[in-house]
Amino acid sequence: MLRERYINLIVLALLLVVPAHAYVTGEPFTVTLATRAVIFALAGVGLNLALGQGGLVSFGHAAYFGVGGYVMGILASHAQNYEPILQVPFLIEGTNAMPVIWLVAIVMSALLALLVGALSLRTSGVYFIMVTLAFGQMLYYFTISWPAYGGEDGLSIYVRNQFPGLNTLDPIQFYGICFVLLCAALFLVDRINKSPFGLALNGAHQNEERVQTVGINVYRVRLVAFVISGAITGLAGALFADLNRFVSPTMFSWQISGEIMIFIILGGVGRLFGPVLGAALYILLEHFLGGLSEYWFIYLGAILLGVVLFAKGGIIGKLAKREVSHDG
């Protein structure tokens, strides 16, 4: 139990030291890579609440990632063109203030998760996976055929959005924002995992009937978890769009859903830092193997296969040498 805590601290320390070192030695590209890793980690932390703690294999988390991205894209594009989003019945203007964008991204992805969850949680197993996937694909094709915001070509934002008191165009400062948000999400999810709610959520993952029999409405517990999960992934989507200053339907693609899932599986399903380590590793592999060959996915596949076969609790599980992850 202590060992897992040490691993977490090491991961956290590396996320501080590596970008800081890269910044000092003048390698902004490494800072950008680290920012990608941290944003992907945040998306994974969101999914991990549903998948790891709740056992809800959502194969459609790209939907929330994409909604977060498009919230940023739509708000910022209106702000940069000085066009209000809505004039009647009341005026809604675009914005380039990150905190507002985050809030809207969280609310919109939470609402979408509420809708998707309310329907999909009535099913289980393969059906659940398929229903969540279907919603993701619906949004994917919707954005492709929606000309107002770029359709298939996506939407470019010329200037990064603003955060009061910071220069967000400075890579290290934008990294700092993402890192703090990741830490906040980790703290939140850790609290949730240890709460009565978390105990019930994970309990229902282990034995649904047991949790029902003590008078807990499992459907409602899962729905709340699913909404929080989607909201966190949505926030990550808004940051990802801001990092690239570009949004496109690809953010909704099922490959993104798969990648978010890969982070978790690599790092350790249900482990607090599983998606963080997984995302960092994914970015490293993408960078180094991607440099070797454009077919680097074949190596990723092999590694993933190795983890699934020989390290059941992911890499953190292997290092911590403990199968169970719920201790306080």
């Binding site: 609290r191 709460s195 009565p196 105990l199 019930a200 517990v221 709340v224």
Partner: peptide, 16 residues
């Protein structure tokens, strides 16, 4: 937890 109706407490540790 089921008996207490505290299931939607999300931020207080259950084991404390």
């Amino acid at each position: 937890i089921g008996q207490s109706g505290k299931v939607f407490r999300l931020f207080t540790p259950a084991m404390k």
